[in-house]
Amino acid sequence: MKPPRRLLGTLLAAALAAGAALPARGEYADVVLNRRAEKEGVRPVVFPHWFHRIRFRCKVCHQELGFRMRVGTNDFRMADIIDGKFCGACHNNDVAWGPERCDLCHSGKPGLPTGIYGGHETNGPGRW
C-alpha cells in the first residue's frame, strides 16, 4: 500500500512543480481573444463577462456598442478601440482605464486560442 501512495505523491508533486498545465478553465463565460494579439506581440485578451455584467446590462455592449453574440465574429482592432468604438466606448480613461494600459486586458496566457471558456455547455457564442 505504501510504495504506490508515495509514488503517486511524488508524481503529483512533480506535476505541480512543472506547473503542469492548469486546465484553461477561467470563470464561466470568460472570453479569450487571440486572433491577432500574439501575432502582434502582446498577450491574448481575457474578457470577463462576470466583471462587466455587474456594471453594465448585456444590452449596453450587445446593442448600443454592436458586439455580436458569437466569439470571433467581432472583427475589431486596437485602432477602433482608440477611436472610441467597441471596448473603447468605455476604456477611454473616463469610464474605465484607457487603451494605453495594455497589460490589464492583454492578460492571458500565451498560446490560448480564441473562444469562450469557463465550463460553458453549448458551442454557443464559442462557435465561429
Binding site: L22, P23, A24, R25, F51, D103, L104, S107, K109
Partner: peptide
C-alpha cells in the same frame, strides 16, 4: 490559477 490569465503578467493583483 484559472488557466487563462498569465500568472506572471502584471495584471494579476490589479484585476
Amino acid at each position: 490559477r484559472d488557466g487563462l490569465h498569465d500568472p506572471k503578467g502584471p495584471a494579476i493583483g490589479q484585476l
